[in-house]
Simulated assay, not measured.
Amino acid sequence: MSREATRRRLTEKQADTVDRLTRAALEVLSREGFAGLTVRMVASTAGVGTATAYTYFSSKEHLVAEVFWRRLAATQPPLADASDANSRVVAVLRQIATLVADEPALAGAVTSALLGTDPDVSHLRTRIGIEIRKRLMDALAPNVDLDIVETLELLYAGALVRAGVGYASYTEIADRLEKSALQVLANPEL
């Protein structure tokens, strides 16, 4: 069975290599931080040749963005059993905001990586954005207002950048994001 990666479809063996690289990236990040992380170091930790690693990841930013994408994709959206849309939206935003909260090295690296200009990062940024938009729209259903969705996306993106640059912890940002989202939802004209 093949699985899709950022740059191409993968065989089972290739998917295993990519999995090893993404796990090794987390290990290297925790030791070296984003500034010290290199694709070469990750390849060595994963027991993979550097050229092989570059076959899958064009840069360290691409590698870290892939780690975040995989984490997001593997996380099921909060259950939609809340009766009101506001509670569902807040649950989605809180889940996304705290996705990397317990891993400060990864959190900072994700912020740096997703702001990069690498075309493979751009592709992942789009995939991540589409997934988050889908989750927000599902939470707002059946009364989806695209202006509200876009405002919530701006709130979430700004909040994560603030957390990523260290203005507040991800937990504090999640709390602030909840308050801001509820203000927008209560007064869509803001």
Rank of each mutant, 00 (worst) to 15 (best):
R3F: 11
R3G: 08
R9T: 13
E12R: 14
T17S: 03
R20C: 00
A25M: 08
E27T: 15
V28I: 08
V28P: 02
L29A: 07
L29S: 04
L29D: 04
A43T: 04
A43G: 15
S44R: 14
T45W: 00
A46K: 02
G49Y: 00
T50V: 14
T50Y: 11
T52P: 01
T55G: 11
Y56E: 02
F57H: 10
S58M: 03
S59I: 03
K60F: 06
F68W: 12
R71V: 07
L72A: 09
A73W: 06
A73E: 12
T75W: 09
Q76N: 10
P77F: 04
P78Q: 06
L79R: 13
A80V: 11
A80Q: 13
A82W: 07
S83W: 06
N86F: 08
N86A: 15
V90A: 11
A91G: 10
V92Y: 07
V100Y: 07
V100W: 04
V100R: 06
D102R: 10
E103F: 12
A105C: 06
A105S: 14
V110S: 11
V110R: 09
T111V: 13
T111D: 14
T111H: 12
T117L: 10
P119V: 00
P119Y: 01
P119G: 10
V121L: 10
G129K: 10
E131A: 15
R133Y: 04
R135F: 09
L136Y: 06
M137C: 14
A139E: 05
L140W: 02
L140M: 15
P142Q: 02
V144L: 03
V149T: 03
V149R: 00
T151M: 12
A157N: 06
A157K: 05
A159Q: 00
L160R: 15
S169K: 00
T171G: 13
I173K: 00
A174N: 08
A174M: 04
A174S: 11
R176M: 08
E178N: 06
E178V: 03
E178H: 02
S180G: 11
Q183M: 13
P188C: 03
P188W: 03
P188I: 08
